[in-house]
């Protein structure tokens, strides 16, 4: 009881600004050592970005890291949600954006009028783990294989004392309680990732494919909540709940130990062409910093994200190089 009240109070601030304000991170503990020759005082201006809440913590850290090299650029980021970010980059309201979901074909088409003839470029910059979380008595960890997890979320396993769960957790005293699944009721990239994982695990159990909206035929077997903060709060308030959230926001809830973690890729969006020279130079240096070793390690330290592997980094470098600026190659 005390635990859940404490958790609730902790997440109270998160809920109050549902657009996704987050707790400040102190990144000064992470040493950044730009030498004199790396610092560029010439690039200056205010750069506006917007988008996903998932990358907010890392972006805050990246801002500071980036400023060590480019002290005269001020980056502003509005964590209004992936959808808002995509809208902004297409309309030109933001210079860069962050999104958990790739653009749809329609969106790419729309972007071509503002963002250059090749439209928007989408670069994976943030790879995070999606944890399966639960609130059951004082249990901190459970082992569940992928099939069991899929069965639970499909509504096929309904009680914590089910034999299948007991089998995988022999030493744990599992109570006879209903399993309450808590899902994301908003249209979310996390839903995409999760449902894709279910489909790949067992299509006979999860018959609804990959979708960012939870299928309504099984919606009545679960509870829905708004945003990552929402599912974490509801899970904490309930007894016997199971849900899913970015590993950075799990709080004190129990976590399922999995062999292969579910990874979610989040993207940075940029135009393929910038008429404004300063904006173009900013974006290239910004993205370049983010995918660099120090940028990725900083993000890992702050948000527990996974560092990009070599092939991802190389592809990203190619994409960044393809951005054209001003009158070049138009």
């Amino acid at each position: 009881m005390k635990n859940s009240v404490f958790t609730s109070l902790c997440f109270l601030c998160l809920v109050l600004v549902l657009s996704g304000c987050s707790v400040d991170n102190d990144v000064s503990q992470f040493k950044l050592n730009p030498n004199q020759s790396n610092i560029d005082l010439g690039l200056r201006g205010q750069m506006a970005g917007s988008g996903a809440t998932s990358q907010k913590n890392s972006i805050d850290a990246w801002k500071l890291g980036y400023n060590a090299y480019y002290p005269n650029i001020s980056v502003a980021y509005d964590p209004k949600g992936s959808g808002g970010g995509r809208k902004d980059i297409i309309s030109g309201a933001s210079i860069f954006a962050a999104s958990d979901k790739l653009l749809s074909d329609e969106e790419i088409k729309l972007s071509k009028s503002v963002c250059g003839s090749n439209g928007v470029i989408q670069i994976p910059t943030y790879i995070s783990k999606i944890e399966i979380i639960f609130n059951l008595d004082n249990i901190k960890s459970l082992s569940l294989d992928n099939k069991t997890i899929t069965a639970i979320f499909s509504g096929k396993i309904t009680n914590w004392s089910d034999s299948l769960i007991k089998l995988q957790n022999p030493q744990i005293n599992l109570p006879n309680k209903l399993i309450t699944v808590v899902r994301r009721s908003d249209d979310s990239g996390t839903n995409d990732t999760l449902t894709s994982f279910f489909s790949k695990t067992d299509e006979s159990l999860w018959q609804w494919g990959e979708t960012s909206s939870w299928p309504s035929s099984i919606a009545s077997l679960s509870q829905g909540a708004q945003g990552t903060a929402g599912v974490v709060i509801v899970s904490s308030l309930g007894d016997g709940t199971i849900s899913y959230a970015d590993s950075a926001q799990v709080g004190t809830l129990g976590v399922v130990a999995m062999d292969n973690p579910i990874m979610q890729i989040s993207y940075m969006l940029a135009c393929s062409h910038y008429n404004d020279i300063i904006a173009g130079q900013f974006v290239k240096s910004w993205l370049g910093y983010i995918i660099s070793k120090s940028g990725q390690e900083l993000s890992h330290n702050v948000s527990n994200s996974m560092v990009l592997n070599d092939s991802q980094t190389n592809q990203a470098k190619k994409d960044i190089d393809s951005i054209t600026i001003g009158k070049e190659n138009v």
Binding site: G81, E107, D186, Q226
Partner: peptide, 8 residues
């Protein structure tokens, strides 16, 4: 309110 933020 739930769907508006991400709606096309």
């Amino acid at each position: 309110a739930a769907q508006f933020p991400e709606a096309n």
